[in-house]
């Protein structure tokens, strides 16, 4: 593990990725403690301030400190994205491995269904699910998770197909182990590495997808300091204080870049060819 980390830190991509993601995690944990102001209080005299002393990132239409809102909002944004990806990954991994294990017609049926679902763009799919379930943060999380499941299932299946041919799986089947046992205990642990890589990159998609959902008014509700919602609200005040859009946009992009780099770095490290 430490060795892996060391190799990861050796590539510039991996190093920057690890740094950004670590920073994001620190903000998630410590953000509210670091925030200089309340994220929700109204300050009528401080509206539309540009960056300056006292308010490093400026203030928004209610005079709220943008930096504080970003620090508080990291939880809503980053944690949600991570959880949704984890949900989609787990579901996708189980489906993909099962499909690979069963093979034949069952595999065919599952994968064609997955193909059909994947032909719908994930944003559209998430919108559909949120509309069906109703608007709330939890439903947005579920929607993003479900929207990610098919592609994760596909990635997992391709890896699992190779694993399925391994002797230890055949041995388990010959032993008379149940299908569930073979899938969960024998196959899943051996497909984890590529899935983790895929998952890291997907976290960045999830950050963006959540931001988009909030932007379209289907995720977090105001006055929550969710980053996508901040951009969405800020758009109306673009001419009064452009920083209201710029900072949360940069925050979203930075986290997305961080997870992307981490994913690429991990791929290089875990890829036997390099």
């Amino acid at each position: 593990m430490i060795e892996l980390f060391r190799r990861l830190a050796r590539s510039p991509q991996g190093a920057i990725g690890v740094a950004i993601v670590t920073l994001a995690l620190m903000i998630v944990v410590l953000g509210p403690l670091l925030a200089p102001h309340s994220p929700e209080g109204l300050y009528p005299l401080l509206r539309y301030k540009g960056p300056g002393a006292g308010h490093w990132f400026g203030t928004d239409q209610y005079g709220r400190d943008i930096l504080s809102r970003l620090l508080y909002g990291a939880r809503a944004t980053v944690v949600m994205a991570f959880l949704a990806t984890a949900l989609g990954t787990t579901a996708g991994a189980v489906i993909g491995t099962t499909s690979a294990f069963l093979g034949g017609r069952a595999d065919e049926a599952i994968m064609r269904t997955i193909d059909a679902i994947m032909s719908v763009p994930s944003l559209l799919f998430a919108l559909l699910i949120v509309n069906l379930l109703g608007k709330s943060s939890l439903n947005a999380l579920i929607a993003v998770g479900i929207a990610f499941t098919p592609s994760m299932a596909r990635v997992t299946r391709s890896v699992a197909l190779a694993v399925r041919q391994q002797d230890y799986v055949n041995a388990a089947v010959a032993r008379g182990e149940s299908s569930a046992y073979v899938v969960v205990r024998e196959m899943l642990p051996n497909v984890v590495a590529p899935i983790i890589v895929e998952m890291t990159i997907r976290v960045s998609f999830a950050v963006m997808l959540f931001a988009t959902l909030s932007f379209l008014g289907l995720g977090a509700q105001p006055p929550a300091p969710e980053w996508g919602l901040m951009v969405s609200e800020g758009r109306r005040f673009m001419h009064l204080n452009a920083w209201m859009i710029i900072w949360p946009s940069l925050a979203i992009a930075t986290v997305a870049i961080g997870f992307n780099l981490l994913g690429d770095g991990l791929r290089d490290v875990l890829n036997p060819r390099t």
Binding site: T212, G228, M238, H239, I245, S249, I252, A253, I257, N260
Partner: peptide, 21 residues
């Protein structure tokens, strides 16, 4: 990397902000 990492609506907002306004 930067292009891929900005959500589309952010890119769109920023392009309008800069070019149109």
């Amino acid at each position: 990397y930067v292009g891929v990492s900005f959500p589309e609506f952010v890119t769109a907002t920023l392009v309008v902000l800069v070019l149109a306004d």
